[in-house]
Design a binder for these strands. Structure first.
Length: 207
DNA sequence: ACATTAAGTGATT
DNA sequence: AATCACTTAATGT
């Protein structure tokens, strides 16, 4: 159990977690949850990170968000409460340690533990606001801003100013073409905000 | 040295 | 902003 949870959860809940939740380690690239699968348990990231994305009929992928340590997936809650199949795909971005909570205890915990409820509500509220933000960005067609926040997000997640991705990979995640990303990155480089290399991008300022 | 893959660029829609 | 066509640069064999 991480120190963080010790500070936000009450002792009784920590004891329950110890008893009911299981530890699980996954390797980079492992699919934790596929689209259409039913959610049977709630994963909480302890170490590492998990990428949540959506794919359309043609198999194009759209990045929704990342789950970082001490966070959990908001979509999971909304799906699992009524046993709906998952709308999203969860893939381990790196080697990741999870704490998985069976959904059978959800109802009970929500009423029994105020700190659990606020934890759940906080992650849902956080993601919802974030999705609204990206919806705004898409609606107003500002791909350059989307790219910038994507890069910021990335470097925060990896804790490094160096991002090891090709232009193509970035384009795939933002559901656009490589040429567009190349051009936007070039512009950012000319503005002195980035340095471009083969297969990696170095962020200079906090943009 | 050659083939392969990533990135840069102009023109077009 | 997307696509095409093409060039240039980096990397692997």
């Amino acid at each position: 159990m991480t120190d963080y949870f010790k500070t936000i959860f009450e002792p009784a809940l920590l004891a329950e977690l110890e008893k009911k939740a299981k530890r699980q380690s996954v390797k980079a690239g492992d699919v934790i949850l596929g689209i259409g699968q039913t959610v049977k348990q709630i994963p909480i990231v302890v170490k590492g990170s998990v990428k949540i994305s959506r794919t359309d009929e043609e198999g194009r992928e759209l990045l929704l968000y990342y789950i970082n340590p001490n966070e959990t997936c908001a979509m999971t809650f909304t799906c699992c409460m009524q046993q709906y199949p998952s709308e999203i795909k969860a893939v381990a971005e790196e080697d990741t340690d999870l704490l998985v909570v069976p959904i059978s205890v959800m109802d009970e915990w929500l009423v029994k533990f105020p700190t659990w409820k606020s934890f759940v509500m906080k992650t849902i509220r956080g993601r919802f606001n974030e999705l609204l933000k990206t919806l705004d960005q898409v609606a107003f067609q500002k791909l350059d801003e989307r790219l910038v926040s994507y890069l910021k997000e990335k470097s925060k997640a990896t804790g490094s100013a160096l991002i090891n991705l090709s232009h193509q990979q970035i384009a795939d995640e933002l559901a656009t073409s490589r040429v567009v990303i190349s051009r936007l990155l070039k512009k950012l480089e000319n503005d002195g905000k980035l340095l471009l290399y083969r297969n990696q991008v170095k962020i200079l300022r906090d943009l």
